[in-house]
Amino acid sequence: MDLFNHMEEFKMDVLKEVGNIGAGNAATALSRLLNKPIDMAVPKVQMLPFEAISEQVGGAEQVVLAIFLRVEGDAPGNLFFIQSPEAAKKLLHRLAGFEVEGEDSFSEMEWSALSEIGNILAGSYLSSLADFTSLQMTPTVPALALDMAGAILSYGLLQFGEMGDSALLIDTTFIEGQHEVEGQFFLIPDPESFAKIFAALGVPLEHD
């Protein structure tokens, strides 16, 4: 875990850039779909205790809509795209003209549209990362869930769980105009993947 406890500022900056490039590309894809500009907050890269990770989306019991996919290849990891159910409904309405009905449930049609949107966004996030790092990264088919944030996010922490009680999170938020479409990308590379990402980007990795 030393690698993570003493990660220098500039390495954090490299990871921020990773988040920036991935989410930036996904934001461009979304803005093309919506024909609207999408803004992005500056990525946050933090080593967070497990408990604090669900706090980033409103707490362990907060109900969120999450698209999860496992990244396979040279630098495996977990990628989530997280939205509030309201934001997802608005996105569906804007994108495909779905009438916004019950806030808490999604029809089969909406579910499949969301899955496709997730596929596009996560795909563009990953493909830009793969281009940037020249690492091979392939996504699994995305899985969707509407549930408590704690229950969902804990799935992305299992690999870190073997090493400690915190995980390194690359967190990027989307904002559209009047905050109508908001979403957060969480990339949690497996602990072993950092060395590969740094090596691919020419960042020396010294052991202390």
């Binding site: 408990e51 669900s54 704690g150 229950a151 799935y155």
Partner: peptide, 21 residues
């Protein structure tokens, strides 16, 4: 919390949130 344990005696509740796997 997650990956944690605790005990209680007498009155009261003991709770954990957001169990997934």
């Amino acid at each position: 919390g997650m990956a944690d344990l605790n005990v209680i005696s007498g009155h009261g509740l003991i709770r954990t949130t957001g169990l997934g796997s």
